[in-house]
Amino acid sequence: MFSLTSCLYISAFLFSTGVYGVLGRRNILVVLMSLELMLNAVNLALVAFGRAYAAQDLAAAHTGQIFALMVIAVAAAEAAVGLSIVLLVWRRWQSIDVRDLCRMHG
């Protein structure tokens, strides 16, 4: 049960669920959370691949993990900027509807 393929299946499922959340939901907060979900799915895949190759080369495992670490950093940055925008949008229009973002172009 604990195998590379099953890790990848879980990762693929989480990713697809994230895609659904991003495309189907209109709440900006949920959209942002779905994005985090997708990033985590990718992280899982990266680490799993790294672990799978570690039998031959330890550096491969580390490369996957470092990649995942960078993704976490990027996610943190994205969340910080994204959420401050959400706050501003809320202050301006009292809305967290994705569709209302189009009002930003005047």
């Binding site: 991003v22 994705v98 569709r99």
Partner: peptide
């Protein structure tokens, strides 16, 4: 370029 985020996202997807 409608500024309509769901449309962008859909295109992106």
């Amino acid at each position: 370029q409608s500024g309509f985020v769901p449309a962008y996202l859909l295109t992106f997807g």
